[in-house]
Design a protein around this nucleic acid. Structure first.
Lengths: 104, 104
DNA sequence: TGTTCATATGAATAGGTGTTCATGTATAAT
DNA sequence: ATTATACATGAACACCTATTCATATGAACA
């Protein structure tokens, strides 16, 4: 166990990321974007939410540097902000998605 | 990239965990508990919150099987619910606490 | 039993937030 | 310029939640 303490800034930043991922709709958006760039309308359809709602969430995810936007004509494609984010989120999701063996 | 899609149940469960960790006070509590069993009053002091507030948060973390309680006399000690949780949370916190090299 | 310490819990409240609706902005095409 | 498509944004609302205060439970000790 390398480090089990965090200073206040790290805690706040980490909590913000967790907070954003703690919303089912937003989590779905992020997961969809991990595979590669997805347009807003495609996200809305795949998630079953209105484009407006998706856009609202995307704004927060953009502001937190979790996702990045890339315009192609009329459409805007979203993907992980960088490789670090992609790796971290991918790992987190894989890890936590694993069922606990000794649950009770 | 092993898997980038999650079903609805997995998404909900994952979102719940993230949601609980997305609160600074709660995140601090969890981080404190990763090193080993900590009493409620010790948590309250180390975090700078009232024992009542800590207890409220602990209830949620207990219910989500993130932390477990162990009574020793008058005190109650909290720690990670199991090794899986400890590993997963430890990894997440270490990972996300790493600064991004190519941020901008 | 009565008292004290440690924790838990219920109610109340203030602030936050997810969603919707309406509207605005940007791009493309006629 | 006008229209259509894709996305963004502001306001409003309903719901949720973090915190506090008061009170209860449970354990040790006199």
């Amino acid at each position: 166990m390398a480090r089990t303490t965090l200073d206040d800034d790290q805690t706040a930043e980490l909590a913000e990321i967790f907070h954003l991922l703690g919303e089912p709709t937003r989590l779905r958006i992020v997961v969809c974007c991990l595979a590669g760039p997805v347009s807003v309308s495609a996200l809305a359809e795949r998630i079953g939410a209105s484009p407006s709602l998706v856009s609202h969430h995307l704004r927060l995810l953009r502001a937190a540097r979790i996702l990045r936007a890339e315009r192609r004509g009329k459409q805007v494609f979203y993907s992980a902000a960088d490789e670090h984010i992609r790796t971290v989120l991918g790992d987190m999701i894989e890890h936590v998605a694993e069922p606990a063996d000794d649950a009770g």
